[in-house]
Nucleic acid binder design. Structure first.
Lengths: 195, 195
DNA sequence: TTTCCAAATGAACGGGCGTTCAGTTAAATG
DNA sequence: CATTTAACTGAACGCCCGTTCATTTGGAAA
């Protein structure tokens, strides 16, 4: 019953990624089987291997594409103005990028230990790039006297944890809209680092 | 070769918990087998069932004991003084309690989705108790005008995420001692909520 | 209409899984 | 020393795992 209607490679491929993302975010990489992913796509397990080398690559590709999209979107922001303005742009960008991608965020931060050592190193390097972008803003502000942070590295990690943690409890049907959340978090960030 | 020397139930029991905690923190609940845990303890897989009803209970007990210990330690703090002082005590307590328990923290925040619905509800209730303790302080400070937070619930979640995230990158052999970290995080927290 | 081949099937591979349990061991008890 | 029993073994249960591959299918190309 192969190829029931039309050529499928352009359709099934993305469906595999989508199903894998949703299932892994929900149950965890180790708890999801290739047969479950295949069932969600509507094929047999063997067919998945037309679209991924193996299960590990499936996880790595999900995480890499998320990180690459994040870094590209950040670059496209073209942050400008003084450090305080740049920090506001970064903060709002972070929230706006992450909130609609709850599954990606979940997988990227919870499944690091299921990556092979090589793949872990690659994802870590991308993460560090992103952290460094924030730290550069904090250093600029510290130098120019706009910020008074105890340590730029520690503050970077603290702020990213605070912002990313939002994805763990925010619900689109909750009592607060994204704009309101964004304003509240910017308020907290601004005060925390202000001189 | 049963019972090689002395009665073991008081020894093997804790060893099972320790091995399970370390292995689950390292590899994840679903990725760790009962046989691996047994091997780390030095027994056969079947012997584990003298100490736990099943694998699920092993995970739940680890998380519950962590949360109960956290709430008991918090109660023992007997927070006193004005809201700002109480917030400082809470912040420093949180860091001092969590930093030496990296494995417990990791498991408690990463394996929630591997709990059965009933067990999930129980752990969530304990977590909410802890969050509420912080939110009560924030509300007091907001009422008395010492704090100026945008929303006590949002601020609670933001602060806890920031503080707990520390466990994900702090290394005891890193460049910063716990006391220094504690002071830095308190600095960030204080400024973020101050009126 | 015939040929071609991308796409998917379905069975099979060896192996590991959580859990149970009859049997064995050796420390504790009398 | 004889008995009891807590602690553990080792084998077995049925089941699911990731991955491979010969085979089948049916739309597209000639």
């Amino acid at each position: 019953m192969a190829r029931k209607q039309g050529s499928h490679s352009g359709i099934t491929g993305p469906k595999v990624q989508d199903a894998a993302l949703r299932l892994i975010a929900r149950h965890g990489y180790a708890a999801v089987s290739m047969r479950q992913i295949a069932a969600a796509v509507g094929v047999q397990a063997g067919a998945l291997y037309n679209y991924t080398e193996d299960k590990q690559s499936l996880l790595f590709d999900l995480m890499q594409s998320h990180m690459v999209a994040l870094l590209e979107a950040l670059a496209a922001q073209d942050l400008h103005g003084d450090p305080m303005q740049q920090l506001e742009q970064f903060t709002r960008f972070h929230i706006r990028f992450h909130l609609p991608r709850a599954d990606h965020v979940f997988v990227s931060y919870m499944e690091l230990r299921n990556l092979s050592p090589d793949n872990f190193g690659r994802i870590e390097a991308l993460r560090r790039q992103y952290e460094n972008a924030l730290e550069a803003i904090l250093r600029d502000g510290q130098t120019s006297g706009v910020f008074a942070v105890p340590d730029t590295r520690v503050t970077t990690m603290a702020l990213i944890a605070m912002l990313t943690g939002l994805s763990n409890w925010y619900r689109t049907d909750g009592r607060l809209a994204m704009d309101a959340i964004e304003a509240m978090y910017w308020d907290l960030v601004r005060k925390a680092v202000a001189a």
